[in-house]
Amino acid sequence: MLIRQKSEIPSSEITPKREYMNRRAFMAAAGAGVAAVAGGRALRGLAKAAPVDAAEQLATVKSPLSTQGLALTPLYDITHYNNFYEFGVNKDDPAKHAGSLRTRPWSIKVEGMVSKKKTFDIDDLLKLRPIEERVYRFRCVEAWSMVIPWAGYSLSEFIKQCDPLPSAKYIEFTSLDDPKQEPLPWDAGIQWPYTEGLRMDEAMHPLTLLTFGMYGEVLPNQDGAPVRVVVPWKYGFKSAKSIVKVKFVKDQPLTTWNLMAPNEYGFYSNVNPNHDHPRWSQKRERVIGAPIWKQLQPTLMFNGYADQVASLYQGMNLDKNY
């Protein structure tokens, strides 16, 4: 046992197969002189990224659901300012420690109120629909914000494949909980595994994104690789990372932060400048990556997506259902 452990190559030194194949594809394409066919953008990305971190490229198509006219947050900031408590509570901890997360093999188990239990392999999920680039605002409950070019497709496309029963009213996401891959720090104060949930109509909304990448590359580990959800009109913690299980249920699921402090983090947690967190204001936010004297900006209702999503909450008291 000991000998075998010793002879094992650290996972950090193994080049993922996909990455390796990608590099070969690039070399072959370049050698054959068909580089132009591969598309200027993907190639530029490959040539730039390969020698540094060899991040895996994702071919994306444009989407009308992408938010226009916003300056993107630099990739460095999106990958070095993270809340991913499985890897530590400080913002720079996930970038330091998430290297131990293994994203292959990976699958999502589908359980609960479905006509048949299923398991989806990550590589099949990547092929299910064309991957779209969706630029979204991202607003954390801690009053900071980013603008991120995610890559993925509407979660509804995946839900259709899951074939949930009509009586399913909510969807519950479970994130990876593996002490061998994650340090699970003592001072995080939350329960593992991390769970989140959405009402079915929220989950089926076209803006809700099943996300595999950002900036045209696969998700970096610290941003929830290999697959997460992104719900752009809700506070960031609603967008569960590194998902291993999806469950369709009848009753509102128990979710991690809501369990931790129900008076501070509601089940809905829609971005709402008119409902302050009990301890700090949600009227303003700090733009990540902006110069210090320009960081402060007003927060928008539903994070600027009111036109698309306000109808989901018609007649609801959003001050009570925060």
């Binding site: 630099p74 460095y76 900031d77 070095h80 300012y81 913002k91 900071w144 700090r286 990540i288 990556g289 110069p291 210090i292 960081q295 402060l296």
Partner: peptide
């Protein structure tokens, strides 16, 4: 951060 390196104080300088 005001001159050569906007990221000198990290991603969230206020914080």
């Amino acid at each position: 951060s005001a001159t050569s390196d906007p990221a000198a104080l990290g991603p969230d300088p206020t914080h």
